[in-house]
């Protein structure tokens, strides 16, 4: 019986719990193809490989293949693509699903080009039609949905959009059978020389269940404390519109929108953001959108599930007080 792989980059702390989102779409694909789900763990040492296998077992993944090589300790797209391509050639999985974060989005295309097979990317839904992986994805700056299918024979590759699938609750744990795959890696032409961490307080914008964003309507950079306090009260992350990032009030790492991040939290709160299309494309897929803006004509209200026309400086302190009670 063939396998559907989910790829877990376990070296150097790169994968997070969010990678377990791959399990549900992999099960869908595996059952349609008459295959089983197996994780492919990429690690630089045995300890990382074992702890990744344990975490996968907790989520009911009963089969793990590992590629362990010291060269995987520092991320290089050529090395990672080489490792996955060699593993595919050794074991011939039917399909391989990658977590579509910044790591696999960088090297998975090289795997596809190396093997000369199609890749479908950023899938928010996935099925199998006529034996071929078929995905739906956001396109045209999130405004429409595109359906694409793999056209090549052989292994089928897809990257899955972060937060598109839920991690299942209450899954019976498994003790995974672990097999090692041997590869021979060649040195890469790129070398990672340093990493400057930009995460604040452990909640990343892309992974947060709640995002509170501020815009030009807050009038001055120091007024962003309103955004930070509400985000803190809701256990969320802080976002910003392009206008305030360009004005130098906030770092680009907080920018939500066309040239910033795309977020899809359970709750998105927009404070003093008018809602230009370039901002909407970064947050319109949030489950619930709350907007607070003085201007009743602001386009953000057309996208909001709940809008308050008024002054954020009056509303937010009252909101925090009432949430406390």
């Amino acid at each position: 019986m063939s396998n559907v792989w989910i790829v877990i980059e376990a070296a150097a702390g790169r994968c997070t719990k969010a990678y377990l989102e791959l399990v549900a779409p992999a099960q869908t694909v595996a059952s349609a193809l008459g295959a089983s789900v197996q994780a492919l763990v990429l690690a630089s040492n045995d300890a990382d490989a074992t702890s990744a296998a344990d975490a996968l077992g907790q989520q009911g993944v009963g089969a793990v293949a590992t590629v362990t090589d010291a060269a995987l300790g520092q991320y290089a797209p050529q090395t990672y693509a080489d490792a996955v391509a060699q593993a595919i050639q050794a074991k011939s999985p039917a399909a391989v699903l990658f977590y579509g974060g910044p790591t696999a989005s960088d090297y998975a295309p090289r795997v596809a080009a190396k093997l000369n097979v199609g890749l479908v990317s950023n899938a928010s839904d996935i099925t199998v039609d006529g034996g071929k992986l078929t995905i739906t994805k956001a396109c045209l700056a999130e405004s429409m949905l595109l359906t694409q299918a793999i056209a090549t024979d052989g292994v089928q590759l897809a990257t899955i959009r972060p937060k598109a699938f839920d991690i299942a609750d209450g899954v019976a744990a498994a003790t995974p059978a672990v097999e090692a795959i041997a590869v021979t890696l060649t040195p890469s032409a790129t070398s990672l020389t340093s990493v400057e961490a930009t995460k604040v307080e452990g909640i990343s914008l892309e992974e947060a269940d709640v995002v509170v964003s501020g815009g030009r309507g807050l009038q001055a950079p120091e007024n962003f404390n309103l955004v930070e306090e509400l985000a803190g009260a809701l256990h969320g992350a802080v976002g910003a519109s392009r206008a305030v990032v360009d004005a130098g009030w906030r770092p680009h790492s907080e920018q939500v929108g066309q040239t910033g991040k795309t977020v899809s939290p359970k709750l998105y709160v927009a404070l003093g953001i008018s809602g230009a299309i370039q901002h909407l494309v970064g947050m319109r897929t949030s489950d619930t959108i709350v907007a607070i803006n003085r201007d009743a004509e602001a386009p953000i209200f057309k996208t909001a599930d709940f809008g308050l026309v008024g002054d954020a400086f009056d509303i937010v302190p009252k909101l925090m007080e009432k949430l406390k009670n």
């Binding site: 078929t134 793999i150 056209a151 009743a296």
Partner: peptide
């Protein structure tokens, strides 16, 4: 050819929010 494009579709309409 790596992929086949099947369809371009509208996003499902979101109900009107309350303002």
């Amino acid at each position: 050819a790596g992929i086949t494009t099947k369809q371009l579709a509208q996003r499902p309409e979101k109900g009107d929010g309350k303002v």
